[in-house]
């Protein structure tokens, strides 16, 4: 839970950056997610105050988008694309091996997720380490990146 100062700071920033119009809700939520890595409940509430939108509606809109998250993410996230283009290039096997060898979500370290499409089908299979996409990905690529970023 954020203290008063944090709320006031966010409110001041939102006031500076976003006109008080409902159409600014998505840009404001995107800004908060960029800053915090997810949408904390208190921050959604502050966005609602600023834009004059009830918290319930802010929450309703926020949770309808796949790219917005209302829970704190693991330290690192590996996403493996399992769209058809990637499946035809062995992504299901890659997903399986990545889960076996790198998933440590229980410790809040590396979470392995499936994504329906990374929109980079011509360099399939693709994976994403935090914010970076890796084309023609192999389990060795992912292990090397994970080794560098963590101490697995």
């Amino acid at each position: 839970m954020a203290d008063r100062t944090q709320r006031n700071e966010l409110r001041a920033t939102l006031r500076e950056r976003f006109p008080r119009e409902r159409s600014q809700l998505l840009p404001a939520l995107q800004y908060i997610q960029d800053e915090h890595g997810y949408l904390p409940g208190w921050a959604m509430e502050v966005a609602g105050w600023h834009l004059g939108i009830p918290s319930s509606e802010v929450y309703g809109a926020a949770t309808s988008y796949t790219e917005l998250s209302t829970s704190e993410p693991a330290s690192h996230v590996i996403k493996i694309c399992t769209g058809l283009g990637c499946r035809a290039n062995g992504s299901l096997e890659l997903l399986e091996r990545t889960k076996q060898e790198l998933d440590s979500a229980d410790d809040g370290n590396v979470a392995v997720e499936e994504v329906p499409c990374g929109y980079m089908c011509a360099v399939a299979p693709v994976a994403k380490w935090d914010h970076d996409w890796i084309g023609r990905a192999t389990i060795d690529d992912l292990k090397a990146i994970a080794r560098e970023a963590t101490s697995i």
Binding site: R22, Q30, I53, A61, Y65, T66, E67
Partner: peptide, 26 residues
């Protein structure tokens, strides 16, 4: 310029409008 926030249905034109107006992606 405006950015989407994920979801196949966002490309549907009326959903896209809702998204831009600050409503749910419906």
């Amino acid at each position: 310029l405006r950015r989407g926030a994920g979801g196949y249905v966002c490309g549907e034109e009326t959903t896209l409008l809702n998204t831009m107006e600050g409503d749910r992606r419906e």
